[in-house]
Nucleic acid binder design. Structure first.
Length: 460
RNA sequence: UCCCCAGUAGCUCAGUCGGCAGAGCAAGUGGCUGUUAACCACUGGGUCCGCGGUUCGAGUCCGUGCUGGGGAGCCA
C-alpha cells in the first residue's frame, strides 16, 4: 500500500476505510483509554490527528511516543469528534519507525528565529520553516510557469566563470592549486598551473552569458545560484543566493520595466492563490499587515520615477535624512524606504540613474549623463530587482569600458555580440530570496534559505 | 568593514546598590481527561560565553576575545 499524503487526506470529501500515512510526531496527548497523536509529513502545514487506542498491540510504546519520532500509521479516515479538525485517523496499527530521544531540540512551543538558525538541519520540521520552504518550491515553479507561458527559454549559464571582473562585487576564487604550496612566477601566482590555466571564480551574475543567448534565442531567463564574497552583514544579504535573470532581445527599458512589474505581480498573485494556508501562518505569526501588503502589490500600479525626480522628491520632502539626497549619488537605504514606505506606499521603479554609479554595460542615454538602468524597490525589502537596457553600440560600450578601467581583451566574446548583428536588448535580476521575504513577511534572508551562507557561517 | 545591543537551566527570559542562582515552558514521575501549544501535582536540572583585572566578596564593575542580533556600506 502506498502512503497517503496528509494534505490529500485533510482535503478528503468522504471517509476511507484504509489509509496509510508516514510522518513525524508533533505532539501526543494521552487520554484514559487512548492517545491523540498529531502527525506531520511536510505535505502541508496541517497535522493529521491519529487516535491510538489501548487495543494496539504496542500501546505501551505508543503512550510514550515523543515529539520528533517517526511513525507509520494505518487506519481508517473518519470524521473527527473534535472541533479543531474535520478528519482524523482511527489507527489500526502504528509502527514506530524511529523513536526520538528527549534530547530532540524542537519543543512544543515557540522558538526564537536565532535559536532555530543554530539548528538549521531540524527547523524545516517546524510549522513556520516548513511553510517557508514549501513556498520556495511553489514560487520556483511559478517562475518557470511565468516565463514558459510567455515563450521565454530557460538557459543555463556557467557557475564557474573566467571573467575576472563583472563589476558586481567580490568573487569567490575557484582553484585546485595547493594553497599550502602555491606556484609562483616572479612573485605572482602562476595560474597557468591551475585547473583552467587562468583565474576562475564563482559567478556573481549570469547576465553576460544570458545576453549571448538572448541574442540568439530571443527571450531567455536563467534561474540559478549566485555567489558574492562581500563581507555583508545585513538581514537581506547572503553569500550564496538564487537569482532569476530574464534577458530579452529587441527590448527597451520601458518593456523591461513592464516585464519586471508583471512578473512580481504574477508571483505574488500566484502565492495568494496557491499558498493560502501557509500564507495565513505568516499573517498570524510573522506580519499582521501581510495580506494587505500583498494585495497592495497586486492591485496598485508600480510608480515609475526617473532618478532625478526621486532626488527631487527626497530633497523637498522635509524629511531629515542621515545622508542628504544629492544628484550623482546613489540612493541610500533610508531614501529607498522613504519612497516606498512613506511617500508612495507601494512599489517604485526608479530609472535613468547617473552613469557614474552604474556598470559599463548599461545603455547610455542621449543626455550622456544617465544610463537606462532601473531598480524595483518594494516596501520592507528595498531593492528586489536591478536591471537595465544593455549598451548595444560597440563604440559606446568600448568607451564606457575604458572609462571604468576594464581590460577589453577579457571581454572579446561579449564585444563580439555588438559586432555581429547587435540589437537593442534588456534584462534584469530578481533576488529570489528577497521575493520570498516579500511574500512571507519574513525579515531576515537567513530564515528563507534552508542552509544560509553568510560571513563566518557555513556550519550546515 | 564600521556603529549599537545582547550572551544566565534544554528553550524564553528575570536577577534591585557588588552580598545564598530564580521563574515560565520543556524533560522525568504520578494523577485526570475526546484532547487541541491539553490540564493538575511533585522531582531533577547551572562552565551565569571565554580569558584577564578590581574587590573581603563579581552573574553584576573594568579590559579583551568569541558568538549572536539590529543598523550602515556593498547589492539581488
Amino acid at each position: 500500500m502506498n502512503r497517503n499524503q496528509i494534505k490529500a487526506l485533510l482535503h478528503a470529501d468522504h471517509p476511507q476505510t484504509q489509509v496509510l500515512i508516514k510522518g513525524w510526531v508533533r505532539t501526543r496527548r494521552n487520554s484514559k483509554d487512548f492517545s491523540f497523536i498529531e502527525i506531520n509529513d511536510g505535505s502541508c502545514l496541517g497535522n493529521m490527528q491519529v487516535i491510538a487506542g489501548a487495543d494496539l498491540f504496542n500501546h505501551d510504546q505508543i503512550d510514550r511516543l515523543t515529539t520528533g519520532s517517526a511513525v507509520s500509521v494505518t487506519g481508517s479516515l473518519v470524521a473527527s469528534q473534535g472541533k479543531e479538525q474535520q478528519w482524523e485517523i482511527q489507527a489500526h496499527r502504528i509502527d514506530v519507525i524511529s523513536m526520538a530521544p528527549e534530547s530532540f531540540p524542537l519543543q512544543k512551543k515557540r522558538h526564537s528565529d536565532e535559536y532555530l538558525r543554530s539548528i538549521a538541519h531540524l527547523r524545516p520540521r517546524t510549522n513556520k520553516y516548513g511553510a517557508v520552504f514549501r513556498i520556495r518550491s511553489d514560487l520556483s515553479y511559478a517562475i518557470h510557469t511565468f516565463f514558459q507561458q510567455r515563450g521565454f527559454k530557460y538557459v543555463h549559464t556557467p557557475i564557474i566563470t573566467g571573467s575576472d571582473c563583472e563589476g558586481a562585487g567580490e568573487m569567490f576564487r575557484v582553484t585546485t592549486l595547493d594553497l599550502n604550496a602555491v606556484p609562483r612566477t616572479g612573485g605572482h601566482v602562476d595560474y597557468s598551473l591551475d585547473f583552467f590555466a587562468k583565474e576562475a571564480n564563482l559567478t556573481v551574475s549570469g547576465q553576460l552569458s544570458a545576453e549571448m543567448l538572448a541574442l540568439s534565442l530571443g527571450n531567455v531567463y536563467t534561474f540559478g545560484p549566485t555567489f558574492r564574497a562581500e563581507d555583508s552583514n545585513t538581514r537581506r544579504h547572503a553569500a550564496e543566493f538564487w537569482m532569476v535573470e530574464p534577458e530579452m532581445a529587441f527590448c527597451g527599458l520601458e518593456q523591461n520595466m513592464d516585464l519586471a512589474e508583471e512578473m512580481i505581480r504574477y508571483l505574488v498573485l500566484y502565492a495568494i492563490e496557491n499558498c493560502a494556508e501557509d500564507l495565513e501562518l505568516f499573517a498570524r505569526f510573522v506580519d499582521k499587515t501581510l495580506p494587505a501588503a500583498l494585495q497592495n502589490i497586486v492591485d496598485e500600479k508600480f510608480v515609475r520615477l526617473p532618478y532625478c525626480e526621486a532626488v527631487d522628491i527626497l530633497s523637498k520632502s522635509g524629511n531629515h535624512f542621515e545622508f542628504a539626497p544629492e544628484t550623482g549619488q546613489d540612493l541610500q537605504t533610508e531614501h529607498e524606504r522613504f519612497l516606498t514606505e512613506v511617500h508612495f506606499k507601494k512599489p517604485v521603479i526608479v530609472y535613468n540613474y547617473p552613469k557614474t554609479i552604474k556598470p559599463f554595460y548599461m545603455r547610455l542615454n542621449d543626455d550622456d549623463l544617465t544610463v537606462a538602468a532601473m531598480d524595483v524597490l518594494v516596501p520592507g525589502i528595498g531593492e528586489i530587482i536591478g536591471g537595465s537596457q544593455r549598451e548595444e553600440r560597440l563604440e559606446v560600450l568600448e568607451r564606457r569600458m575604458d572609462e571604468q578601467g576594464l581590460n577589453k581583451e577579457n571581454y572579446w566574446w561579449y564585444l563580439d555580440s555588438r559586432r555581429y548583428g547587435s540589437v537593442e536588448h534588456s534584462g534584469f535580476g530578481l533576488g529570489f530570496e528577497r521575493l520570498i521575504m516579500l511574500i512571507t513577511g519574513i525579515s531576515n534572508i537567513r530564515d528563507v534559505t534552508p542552509f544560509p551562507r553568510t560571513p563566518k557561517n557555513i556550519e550546515f
